[in-house]
Simulated scan of single mutants.
Amino acid sequence: MTANTATARRLLRREARATRRGPAIALAVVLTVLLLVLLGGTVGWSLDEGFRTQVRAWFAPVAAIAHTAPALLTAGAVLVALALLLLGAAVLPGRRARRTRLDARAALVIDDGVLADAVADGVARRLGVPRGQVRVTVGRRTVLIRVTPTSGVPVDPAAAEDAAGRVLDEAGFRLSPRVQVAPEGVIA
């Protein structure tokens, strides 16, 4: 493996993965606000007797409920779920709606929407239906093709699957096409 291939693979991986900037900023803002509130509460608690009595009055019902087993179990379950969510956001890779391919001459990044449009164009051309009657959704491993036929004109699902497979092979992506033909057609 050459240095250029390693660099291209690293760039492709970077383009296909989403950053965690948004969740990290949101968590930092929430923690900053909570820490500022805690700091203000601590200062108020230490300096003002009236503030202490008011805070005790606010938290008296919470303290009574907090000593029950169901409340402790619920709070624990919520905190564990939040911790698992944050851990998952930190560790699991985010995925953008993009496909990558590396060949001998170039590194290629294709958006799933562009791939779906190419498949829809190929299927519509092969079946002889207007482009607006073919909808394509690109998933992680499959391509779902929904065809609404023109009323009275039959549609061959095998031909649609063959056309989609041909477009995907030309693009160099190994996805399995699935075809759904609407039971009722549209009037042309």
Rank of each mutant, 00 (worst) to 15 (best):
A60E: 06
A60N: 05
A60W: 01
P61M: 08
P61A: 13
A63E: 05
A63L: 07
A64P: 02
A64D: 14
I65N: 15
I65H: 15
I65D: 15
I65R: 15
H67I: 08
H67S: 15
T68E: 02
T68G: 05
A69F: 14
A69G: 14
A69L: 14
A69P: 09
P70I: 02
A71P: 07
A71L: 05
L72C: 06
L72P: 00
L72K: 15
A75P: 01
A75H: 05
A75W: 02
A75R: 00
A75T: 06
A75G: 10
A75C: 04
G76D: 00
A77K: 05
V78Q: 06
V78F: 04
L79Q: 11
L79D: 05
L79S: 07
L79E: 00
L79K: 08
V80Y: 12
A81Y: 00
L82Q: 03
A83G: 12
A83D: 07
L84Y: 07
L85V: 04
L85D: 04
L86S: 07
L86N: 07
L87M: 13
L87K: 08
G88K: 03
G88P: 05
A90G: 05
A90S: 09
V91L: 15
V91T: 03
L92Q: 01
L92F: 01
P93L: 13
P93D: 13
G94V: 01
R95H: 15
R95A: 14
R96M: 01
R96F: 01
R99E: 06
T100G: 07
T100L: 03
T100K: 04
R101L: 01
D103Q: 03
A104L: 11
A104W: 11
A104M: 04
R105Q: 12
A106E: 13
A106S: 14
A106Q: 08
A107S: 12
A107C: 12
L108K: 10
L108Q: 09
V109E: 01
D111V: 15
G113M: 07
V114F: 12
L115Y: 03
L115G: 06
L115R: 10
D117V: 05
A118K: 03
D121S: 13
D121E: 11
G122A: 00
G122K: 00
